[in-house]
Simulated scan of single mutants.
Amino acid sequence: MRYPTAVFLHGAKYTSDFWLKLGTLQKVAESGVRAMAIDLPGFGATPALPYSDNNMRSELLKTVIEAAWPRVNSTVILVSPSMSGRYSLPFLDRHGVMITSFVAVAPIGIKDWGGPWEDTHKRVCALGVYGKNDALAGDAERLVRLFQFAWKVVIPGAGHRSYEDKPDVFHKVLLTFMRKCKRLPNGYHEVLPEQGIELVRTLRQVERAPAH
């Protein structure tokens, strides 16, 4: 049996090991989704690149997705927090149709991004996750306008690293969203209506919850 895969990037203060310690990889795996986290260049076990530009960063992620592709039936969820937006946004511009869903956890660059090229905005589901106290929280509205199928959640009592401030809430939102979209044989995705109500309900419950 083939399973969808969630690929986790990380922020500037972390490595791939953070997602293991937070328990995210285990929770995702228990939900039936293969979970993998990578060290970006210059972090953890990955050496720095000789130089870095948008093409180089997008090709790096393309290589990662290609490695997972044969084993996951083309259903890939990319989770991109903070600094990793320098990698995920160029990747979406150039190779975005390789993934099924994009979880934008306050990635840098959304404010000045024109949106994904070609028809990626129609073929990828997007979720914006932001903390209420994050200076980038305003990017959530822009993100949902850049994709045809997109949702957002602003978590009360959380800052820029909402996944660390409110891990239980973050995991609940993430696991609910991962059930929302499925890759079809024609390369497009199916937005599963039976999961849509659950997703919207979960997002609204989170935003109405007390900040403490």
Rank of each mutant, 00 (worst) to 15 (best):
L78T: 02
D39T: 12
G85L: 09
K111T: 13
I65R: 06
M1P: 12
H10C: 06
R204M: 13
N54A: 15
E207M: 10
L78C: 02
D39N: 08
L199I: 06
V191F: 14
Y130N: 05
V129W: 01
V129D: 09
Q205I: 05
T75P: 11
V144Q: 01
H95R: 08
L184C: 09
Y188A: 03
A67G: 14
E164T: 07
N186R: 10
A68G: 10
E194K: 13
G115T: 08
A209W: 07
V97I: 14
E30L: 12
L20A: 13
P41A: 05
V200M: 01
L49C: 06
T15E: 04
L174W: 05
T46I: 10
D39W: 08
H10M: 06
R94G: 02
M36L: 14
G138S: 05
E141A: 14
K62L: 12
P156W: 06
S80Y: 09
E30D: 11
V79E: 07
V154S: 02
Q26M: 12
S80Q: 00
G42C: 01
V124Q: 01
D168M: 13
L143Q: 07
I77K: 07
A211W: 13
V64A: 11
S101K: 06
P107I: 10
S80F: 03
L174M: 10
R179F: 13
Y87N: 04
V105D: 06
